[in-house]
Design a protein around this nucleic acid. Structure first.
Length: 105
DNA sequence: CCACTGACTACTT
DNA sequence: CAAGTAGCCAGTG
């Protein structure tokens, strides 16, 4: 298995997202040192979220919308986020300006 | 090595 | 704003 720096950083970042906050794939990739690595973040979530206990539900796409492909996954993510106090618009979109984790700013 | 895939993104029509 | 396109890069067969 690959254990490169990028993967490690992505996992580390995701594990440190506070409750009620979210990040986008692109932001995570940027923080991990590879602005173009958004797609890798997605497969990391796919393959590592269970093994590393990652809060995958705090990761959405750049528009603040859940990107999971299955209806079940979307419902599960919405459920978990609501529990943490994250609000959605009618289109199930999250207010990025308010909920994105801006620790790095 | 080549072709295809993906829980992405930014740009163009 | 919706749909299409190109770029991205590791994993898989």
């Amino acid at each position: 298995m690959s254990s490169n720096i990028f993967t490690h950083k992505v996992i580390d970042i995701i594990r440190n997202i506070p409750e009620g906050k979210i990040l986008s794939y692109g932001i995570i990739a940027y923080m991990a040192g590879n602005p173009k690595g958004a797609r890798r973040v997605s497969w990391i979530l796919h393959s590592m979220s269970e093994k590393y206990n990652l809060p995958w539900w705090r990761v959405v796409n750049s528009k603040g919308i859940i990107s999971i492909k299955t209806e079940e996954g979307i419902e599960l993510q919405k459920k978990k986020l609501k529990k943490e106090g994250v609000r959605f618009t009618e289109d199930c979109q999250i207010d990025l300006n308010f909920y994105v984790w801006k620790k790095f700013k």
